[in-house]
């Protein structure tokens, strides 16, 4: 379906649009609140695909004004895509550290008394 639409016929594009909308809703139906921020950041990076569009514009225009427009679009889009993925990766790096790390000895001894009060 997606490949068929690549011809760019408006109805096929609308078909792709509607199907993608459903997928977008379905695919994140279950997400814990701790991951809300990284997920937002991740989707932010994905719409950085606008870079592809910006490249197509800059690569096909001629006049100076249009070149400036296209150049600006590529710069902005690159910011979006590169910054988006890097920020998301940094957020998730932090989540990885959430496993209790190999704490130094003083911290390890300090943890011990706190566990007794935990309600399971």
């Amino acid at each position: 379906m997606i490949a068929v639409a690549a011809g760019g016929d408006i109805l096929s594009l609308i078909t792709v649009f509607v199907l993608a909308a459903f997928v977008g809703f379905e695919v994140i139906a279950k997400v814990p609140s701790t991951l809300h921020t990284p997920l937002m950041s991740g989707t932010n990076a994905i719409h950085g695909v606008v870079l592809v569009g910006a490249m197509l514009v800059l690569g096909t225009v001629h006049g100076t004004g249009e070149l400036v427009l296209g150049f600006a679009a590529v710069v902005l889009a690159t910011l979006n895509v590169v910054g988006g993925f890097v920020v998301t990766d940094r957020m998730l790096e932090m989540f990885k550290v959430r496993k209790p790390p190999k704490v130094s000895t003083e911290a390890a001894s300090a943890v011990a008394p706190s566990t007794e009060g935990d309600s399971k």
Binding site: A6, G7, L13, F17, A21, V23, L39, T43, H47, V49
Partner: peptide, 24 residues
């Protein structure tokens, strides 16, 4: 802008984010 440029990948990714972003 994907519609403007007839770019499927822009339409797919943009819509995915539009829909999932709304739900999020």
């Amino acid at each position: 802008s994907g519609f403007v440029l007839h770019s499927v990948v822009l339409v797919v990714a943009g819509t995915l984010v539009g829909a999932s972003g709304t739900l999020l």
